[in-house]
C-alpha cells in the first residue's frame, strides 16, 4: 500500500508536467488544428535557459529558495514565450492557407531544427542542474513519506492549470480563444482578431511548457537536448487521451498518463515504460478516438 501511494504521488508529479506541456499542444490544436511538433523543443529550451540563467545569477541566494525559483521561472517563461511567437511567425503563419500536410511537415521541420540548434549550443551531453535549489525534506502524507519537491511540483502544476482555466473561462481574451477554437471564420466575422488569438495561444502554451522545463530540471537534476522529444510525445499523448483541443482534458490526460506510466513502470517493467505510454495512446484512439472529454465532430459532407 505504501509503495502504491508512493508511486501514485510520483505519477501525479510527472503527470502534472505532462499536463502543463499538453496544454500548449491542446491550445494550439484547438485554435489552428495543427500539431505543434516544436512545442516539445520549447519545453527543452525552457530547461536550458533556466540552467543558463542560474549560472549567470544566483537567484536562490539573493531571493531565497522559493522567491528565487519563482522569479527564475517567470523570466524563462517570458523568454520562451517570445520564441513561441517567433516560431509561429516564421514556421506556421505563412502556411495558414496551405494544405494541412504542409503545416505538419513544417512543424516537424521546426522541431528538428530547434532540437539540433539546442544541441549545437549546449552540446549533446547531459547537463546538470545545481543541487539543493529547493529544500527537499520528506513530508509525511497519508502515512508515507513524500519528497517535498514532488508535492511542490504537483501543486505548482495544478496552480498554473487552474489559473489558465480561469483565464480561458472568465476573461474576454479567454472567450475569444474559445470562440476561435470552435470556428475561426465565424469568430473572425464576429470581430475577433484571430491573428491576435493565435499569438496569445503561442505566448501561453510555450510559457507553460517552459515552466515545466525548468521544473523538470530542478526535479530530475539533469537535462538533455532530446528531452523535449520524449516529453513532448508523452504530453501530446496526454492531450489526445483527454480529448485534443479541450483544456480540462489535457489536464486530466496528463495526470492520468503520468499515473498509468509510473504504475506500469513500477509493477510491470521500467524498460517498457515508454512503450506502455504509447500502448495506452493506441488503445485510447481505438476505443475513443476523440479522447475522454473530446466531443464527436461529424464530418461535414
Amino acid at each position: 500500500m505504501d509503495f502504491f501511494l508512493q508511486q501514485l504521488f510520483n505519477g501525479l508529479a510527472v503527470g502534472g508536467i505532462y499536463a502543463l506541456v499538453a496544454l500548449g499542444y491542446t491550445m494550439v490544436y484547438g485554435v489552428m488544428k495543427l500539431m505543434n511538433f516544436a512545442h516539445g523543443e520549447l519545453f527543452t529550451m525552457g530547461a536550458f535557459l533556466g540552467l543558463t540563467l542560474l549560472g549567470v545569477f544566483s537567484f536562490t541566494e539573493v531571493l531565497g529558495p522559493f522567491g528565487g525559483i519563482f522569479v527564475l521561472i517567470l523570466m524563462v517563461m517570458g523568454m520562451v514565450a517570445i520564441m513561441g511567437v517567433l516560431l509561429e511567425r516564421v514556421a506556421y503563419r505563412p502556411l495558414r492557407n496551405s494544405p494541412r500536410l504542409s503545416a505538419i511537415v513544417s512543424a516537424l521541420g521546426a522541431s528538428i531544427f530547434l532540437q539540433n540548434a539546442i544541441m549545437l549550443m549546449y552540446g549533446a551531453r547531459f547537463q546538470v542542474y545545481p543541487h539543493g535549489l529547493l529544500p527537499n525534506t520528506p513530508v509525511s502524507l497519508f502515512g508515507v513519506d513524500i519528497p517535498l519537491l514532488r508535492i511542490l511540483l504537483f501543486l505548482v502544476s495544478v496552480f498554473m492549470m487552474a489559473g489558465l482555466y480561469f483565464f480561458v473561462q472568465r476573461t474576454r481574451i479567454g472567450t475569444a480563444i474559445r470562440a476561435a477554437a470552435i470556428d475561426q471564420d465565424a469568430a473572425r466575422l464576429m470581430g475577433i482578431n484571430v491573428d491576435r488569438v493565435i499569438q496569445i495561444v503561442f505566448i501561453i502554451g510555450p510559457a507553460l511548457g517552459a515552466a515545466a522545463g525548468v521544473m523538470v530540471g530542478i526535479y530530475y537534476g539533469q537535462i538533455n537536448f532530446t528531452m523535449g522529444w520524449i516529453f513532448g510525445l508523452k504530453a501530446f499523448t496526454a492531450a489526445i487521451i483527454g480529448g485534443i483541443g479541450n483544456i480540462p482534458g489535457a489536464m486530466l490526460g496528463g495526470l492520468l498518463l503520468g499515473v498509468l506510466e509510473t504504475m506500469g513502470a513500477a509493477y510491470i517493467s521500467t524498460a517498457w515504460k515508454d512503450a506502455i505510454a504509447f500502448g495506452v495512446l493506441i488503445l485510447i484512439l481505438l476505443v475513443r478516438p476523440r479522447g475522454i472529454l473530446g466531443e464527436r465532430v461529424a464530418d461535414k459532407l
Binding site: 490544436y29 495543427l34 500539431m35 494541412r100 500536410l101 505538419i104 510525445l233 501530446f236 499523448t237 489526445i240 517493467s269 524498460a271 517498457w272 515508454d274 512503450a275 504509447f278 500502448g279 495512446l281 493506441i282 484512439l285 481505438l286 478516438p289
Partner: peptide, 26 residues
C-alpha cells in the same frame, strides 16, 4: 489505426515505431 486522420496517424505511427525499437532493445 488506418482510419485516423493526419496528425493522429502521425503520432500513432511514431508510437508504433518507438514500441518496436523498445521491444528490440528489450
Amino acid at each position: 489505426i488506418i482510419h485516423l486522420r493526419g496528425d493522429y496517424l502521425a503520432i500513432v505511427t511514431i508510437g508504433v515505431g518507438e514500441i518496436v525499437r523498445i521491444a528490440l532493445e528489450n
